[in-house]
């Protein structure tokens, strides 16, 4: 359980990180909190030749609110976001759901962007990002680009980021006024990755509903005009249409059951929390 050999660069600023990525190409790996990459290195599931550490880069810790939403630079930790005084008021879905990510210890190091980039199908943040909408901003020596949330996830541990791109920051869109939200997950133990996680946001037009842990990437549906009376049918129909994971932790039948049971509760709760303007 020792990693294979690698060179280590502690990036002083974004330029150094981006240059190092450009030079090493496929053989480089960014390390942020190391909460996912650390074990992968030790298990030799990842064997980068160069490790570019951005966790200590001062300019990348920022958390910023403006009229478009909440923007976090890539070294901002999950704990820092949870400690942000505006979170509960302005992004209550994140405030509700983020305590489900790992443990106090892992959130103290783990970054929001690292979790997004890691793209674990059972992770909470990719699901929340996909339900809430927003964009990832990527930077490479080739230039900058914005990737909308709906185009970001390509598969299990797979995103639209190119190997030489740094995920520089993420923006979570602000919910429309009056939006009701809800989140629930089932994990085997406190702090485990979700077996199934469900998030929903209900606005005047309908419900945006997302599932995590079920498939290779978050499943997002939009139910226009849905009201309380339609929740059960909508969720049942969705549950029948998906092909959930079947693994040692939980078989497909169990995951489908959780989608039905939790899904109904979450969509209902989001609708009930919606309030008129």
């Amino acid at each position: 359980m020792k990693p294979s050999e690698f060179d280590y660069i502690r990036a002083a600023d974004v330029e150094e990180a981006v240059t190092a990525l450009a030079n090493a190409g496929e053989d480089a790996r960014v390390i942020a909190g190391g909460q996912s990459l650390g074990p992968m290195l030790n298990l030799r599931l990842a064997r980068p030749e160069v490790l570019i550490d951005i966790s200590k880069t001062p300019s990348l810790q920022q958390i910023k609110w403006d009229e478009h939403g909440l923007t976090l630079k890539c070294s901002a930790t999950q704990a820092a976001l949870l400690a942000d005084a505006a979170l509960l008021d302005r992004q209550p879905l994140l405030a509700d759901a983020m305590p489900w990510i790992g443990h106090v210890q892992t959130r103290a190091r783990g970054t929001v962007c690292g979790s997004l980039a890691h793209a674990d199908p059972a992770a909470e943040l990719p699901l929340l990002f996909s339900v809430m909408g927003g964009s990832v901003f990527a930077r490479s020596a080739r230039g900058d680009r914005e990737i909308p949330s709906k185009d970001f996830y390509l598969g299990m541990f797979e995103t639209a980021l190119a190997p030489d791109e740094l995920l520089l920051s993420v923006r979570f869109d602000l919910p429309k006024v009056g939006t009701g939200h809800a989140f629930k997950e089932v994990a085997e133990r406190h702090g485990d990755f979700a077996i199934v996680a469900v998030a929903a946001m209900a606005d005047a037009g309908g419900v945006t509903f997302g599932l995590g842990g079920v498939s290779d990437r978050p499943i997002i549906v939009r139910w226009e005009g849905l009201d309380l009376s339609g929740v059960r049918d909508a969720v049942e129909e969705l549950a029948l249409g998906i092909d959930p994971y079947d693994d040692q932790k939980a078989d497909a039948t169990y995951r489908r059951r959780l989608v039905r049971k939790l899904g109904t509760r979450v969509a209902t709760e989001a609708l009930e929390r919606r309030h008129a303007l």
């Binding site: 085997e188 077996i195 932790k249 939980a250 078989d251 169990y254 059951r257």
Partner: peptide
């Protein structure tokens, strides 16, 4: 008694 096993009985 993992949750999935118990749920299979419920099912």
């Amino acid at each position: 008694l993992r949750p999935s096993r118990v749920a299979a009985i419920l099912e």
